Amino acid sequence: MDFETIRELTDLDRILELLGEYRSLGPLPGIFLPMLEAFIPFLPLVLFVMANAAAFGLWLGFLYSWIGTCAGALLVFFIVRKLGQKKLFGFISRHKKIKSLMYWVESHGFGPLFLLLCFPFTPSAAINIVAALSKVSIGQFTLAVLCGKLVMIFMVSYIGYDVRALVQQPVRTAIVLIVIFILWYVGKRIEQKLTVQGVTKEKGN
């Protein structure tokens, strides 16, 4: 994937054009783009979800985004867990901050994973890797992904299913921006709290 392709995938209008060009493939493009973000985390998942909602409608767009996002997260989880003892991932898992997060995830399982995955601006790629390197069960992680992404994808789909209204209705745009800021702020606070508590528990041992 070259730089020009990546640049195109950060522009909402171009994403909508691509979905239109490949509409003959049915839901596959709408599923593939959110799934790709799990492997290339700097791609804009929020834009992919909004584009799906605008291109396929609220419910189908939400469904395709949810399937793709969950599939990508689970694939990353299984790949990292399979290769977790290899040199690269062994180095990552020994990092102090990563170790504290791993300990916290192992201790609390479903709850913190679900909360973090509910918010669109938490680093889901890092969460997938940390969960895979920890001893959290496959069942706990799968349930957290399915439920957390369900909440997050629906919120973003609802915002994005009528993109033009964001331009034509300033009040709605302001509400959307406020909601996005709140989601970002709450997500960052939860992430910071989990990190601090993880470090505290590790020192206590």
Rank of each mutant, 00 (worst) to 15 (best):
V136K: 03
T195L: 14
K82S: 13
R164S: 11
P44H: 09
F3Q: 13
T10F: 06
Y22R: 13
L115V: 11
S134Q: 05
L143S: 10
A132M: 00
I67Q: 10
E21Q: 13
A126V: 09
A144Q: 04
L63Y: 06
S24L: 05
A174G: 07
N205I: 02
L113E: 02
I40N: 08
F48D: 02
L177K: 10
S124K: 03
K99T: 04
V156S: 08
H95L: 05
E17K: 15
T5P: 00
I40R: 10
S100I: 02
W59A: 11
F89A: 04
P34K: 04
L183R: 08
I129K: 03
A38H: 04
G26W: 09
L194R: 03
G72K: 09
F62A: 12
I98D: 00
V167Q: 12
V136Q: 02
Q197S: 07
F42Y: 15
H95A: 07
H95Q: 14
E106T: 07
L43T: 06
T122P: 04
T5N: 08
S124A: 11
S134W: 05
Q169Y: 10
L47F: 10
K97G: 05
F78E: 12
K193I: 01
T69S: 14
I178V: 14
L18K: 13
F154P: 01
L9E: 02
F77T: 02
V105H: 05
M1K: 04
G187Y: 07
E21I: 10
I153C: 14
T200C: 00
F91I: 04
S134R: 05
A174P: 00
G57K: 12
L58Q: 14
F39S: 03
F62Y: 15
R172E: 10
K86C: 01
F48Y: 09
A126Y: 08
I178N: 02
P27W: 15
A73R: 06
C70Y: 08
K97W: 06
V46Q: 08
Q85K: 15
I159S: 01
A144S: 12
P44K: 08
R7D: 04
C147V: 11
F3R: 13
L75A: 15
E4M: 07
A174C: 00
P170S: 09
D162C: 01
K97E: 12
Y22N: 12
L117Q: 03
Y103M: 00
M1R: 05
A55S: 11
K135H: 10
Q85G: 14
V163Q: 09
L33R: 05
L113C: 02
I159W: 04
V145A: 15
T10D: 00
P34A: 03
A132L: 00
R7K: 12
Q140D: 14
I180T: 14
Y161E: 11
F32Q: 02
P120N: 09
K201T: 01
L83H: 06
Y185L: 11
F3K: 15
E8W: 01
S157G: 10
T142F: 11
A73T: 08
S93I: 00
G111T: 12
E202R: 14
V167A: 13
N128P: 01
F141A: 03
V196C: 04
G187A: 06
M102C: 01
Y103D: 00
E191N: 13
K193R: 11
Q140L: 12
E202K: 10
